[in-house]
Amino acid sequence: MAKRTVTVNGSGRASVSPDVVRLDLRVGHDADDVAAALAGATEGVTKVGAVVRDHGVADADIRTLDAGVNQRWDNTGVAVGFTAQQRLAVTVHHLQLVGEILAAAAGAVGNALLVDSVRLDVSDRSDGLRRARDSAFADARDKAQQYAALSGAELGAVLGVAEAGAVPLQGRGMRQMAMAADSAGGMPVEGGDLDLGANVTVTWQLL
């Protein structure tokens, strides 16, 4: 006779305090030919990199994400030149500097700067994910115990565990970005709380 089992999904979350901001910055340049477009984008991204370093960001926290060149067309379908773009990923460890960095970068290259994302994160997620997994397993066990009781049985040994995913979630109390109009035109970033989530599927034997 086959063993009776119960399989349930559990979910859990744990709050952590963000300690870094991850910036995705892009610099573009239009020109008549590919070489000039690339040179202009390179010059612009070099200026942005210098600004970022001037604000204390280490080389290890700056990396090129991608670069590319696209042909430009007018509204009649006639080729009018090329646009080159380069993207930088920047990790800022001091939240209060984000607004200054963005303002300085915009001052260095003007409208050539595009900010694709400003994202709060934690440099080390291990403790938060461990607590989220503990919560997810406890949630699964509670459900399994209820189903076992409804079946007139008791929980036995765990027969299988599969993590369905551990992901960052935006907590209800999280204030990701506080947009404020001040004299400097900066973008203050407030930490708030960040939730890390975990999901697990667990199978128990029923006794």
Rank of each mutant, 00 (worst) to 15 (best):
Q170W: 09
L114Y: 15
N9H: 14
E100G: 13
D61W: 03
N199A: 15
A14C: 14
Q145S: 12
T42M: 08
L113W: 10
L206C: 09
D61A: 11
Q145E: 11
R130F: 15
A36Y: 10
T42D: 04
V69L: 04
D32G: 15
R22K: 13
S151I: 01
G160F: 07
L113D: 00
A105C: 09
I101E: 00
R172G: 14
A105T: 01
Q86C: 02
D61P: 02
A112V: 01
V161I: 13
L97M: 11
A103R: 05
V80C: 07
A39Y: 10
V20W: 02
L194T: 08
Q146E: 13
G186E: 11
Q205C: 06
A41K: 02
T64I: 13
Q176L: 15
L38H: 10
P168N: 06
D30P: 06
D139F: 01
W204K: 06
G28Y: 07
N9M: 14
D19E: 09
V92L: 04
A181I: 06
L159V: 03
E154V: 12
L196R: 04
H29D: 00
T91H: 03
T42F: 08
G128Q: 03
K143R: 15
G110T: 00
D193R: 02
T76S: 12
D142Y: 09
A148K: 00
R119F: 09
A105K: 01
G12E: 02
V202S: 07
A58F: 05
A39N: 07
D33I: 06
D116N: 08
A162T: 12
V167M: 10
